[in-house]
Computed example of a mutant assay.
Amino acid sequence: MKKVNWKIEEQSHFLKRIGELLSRGYPLSEAIESVILHLPIEKKLQVNSILFDLKEGYPFYQALTTMEFNNYLIGYVFFAEQHGGLEKAFQEGSEMMLKRGSDVKKLKKLLVYPCFLIGLTAILFLFVEGVLLPRFSSLFTSMNLQENLFTKLIRMAGEYLPYLLITFMVISIFIGVFYLFHFKKLPHIKQASTLAAVPIAGPFFRLFYTHYFTIQLHYLLTGGLSVLSAFSLFEKNEKQPLYKEIGEEMKINLRNGEKFEEMLTRYHFFDRELFRVIKHGQNNGKLDQELYYFSKHCLRQLEERTDKALKIVQPVMYGLIGFLIVSMYLAVLLPMFHLLEGI
């Protein structure tokens, strides 16, 4: 069958509609059949082709793997099929991915126009530095006048700009090579720890990893599984190598008699509060509820931090553009005033 591309919004809405129908009492196959009616023809044919496998007893997450859905959405479905809370997991997973997609769209909208203005201003800068300033300099020389400080600064900026661009390109190439030949080969736990240590972006990664871990563990514990059994399922999650590795390590350490909450302190990509939340949940016998509320807390924190970052990005971008435009303006006017003083 011809490959069909699903945007992340389409994947999320697909699962969200299925979750809504499941909450109304629909069986999974009937819910999918109802959702198919509203799909474009190419997607309708693709989903119809996997319905037969579902009716034969194959798990839904494998069907989504065949359809090349997002790995985090597949992970939600994988865990949901283990604990039985399909409708709630489908809706919460899809809403989280829709929020993430919405934040990415906002960021693109915020950056497109400022980046265009920066590019246009950079072209004007090159024109001023390469065409206008040399002519002013020749006039200054012929009239025995000295260049003003601002003109000198613009000239210096023009001289160092190529070096800055070359440095940026070298750093970009180095990061790309580092990623392909070193970072990508590291264990996924080490990768997550490295990302969580990145300045500015690190807290976002920690909140995202913590939210996903706690909400899935909550569902499994609510479904009646023990902590050890829950990590056995984490271990079987082939589509998410990070959580698979966590499951493998946790399972071994639990069997060796280590305490659950103490093991979490080794994973620096989790929020520091998770240790206390789990310890408190084990003490009061409501670990599954504590995990649920903490996962909601992490999601709220992630949303608030994202909104705050987006509100900062735009003013900074426009401030930079304003500075560049004023610089161009002064680069032309100040030499003219200087020449008038020399006449």
Rank of each mutant, 00 (worst) to 15 (best):
A331T: 10
E68F: 01
I189T: 09
V332N: 07
L310E: 06
H268D: 11
F78I: 03
K2Y: 13
R135C: 04
I189L: 11
L149A: 04
R100G: 09
I175P: 08
F168G: 08
S193T: 07
Y76P: 02
F183N: 06
F234H: 03
E20N: 08
V104H: 09
E258F: 15
Y61N: 04
T265L: 08
N144S: 10
F234P: 10
L37M: 12
E290N: 05
T65W: 03
F79W: 00
I246A: 08
M169D: 01
S193Q: 15
L291A: 09
E68G: 03
I50Q: 15
L21N: 12
G75P: 00
E33G: 08
L139R: 13
F174D: 05
N237G: 03
E129G: 11
N148K: 05
L302E: 08
I18K: 14
E56R: 13
T151A: 15
I278V: 15
G57L: 13
K184H: 11
A201Y: 15
F174W: 14
L120A: 06
L110I: 14
C115D: 00
N144I: 02
N284L: 09
L180C: 00
T214R: 05
P241Q: 08
F181D: 00
Y163P: 07
R24N: 12
N70G: 05
V131K: 06
I189H: 10
H182E: 04
L37D: 00
A197C: 12
E87W: 13
M328G: 01
Q314T: 10
F52R: 13
N284T: 01
L339Y: 14
P162A: 14
D103V: 05
F174A: 15
V128R: 02
Q191N: 15
D103H: 08
S327Q: 01
E303F: 01
K16P: 00
I312A: 12
V131Q: 02
Y292R: 14
A157V: 07
P315S: 09
V316P: 15
R155S: 13
V35I: 11
Y160L: 14
E30H: 10
A31H: 09
R100D: 08
I252Q: 15
K108F: 10
S12P: 02
F150W: 01
V326Y: 00
A89Y: 01
E238M: 00
V277P: 07
G281S: 09
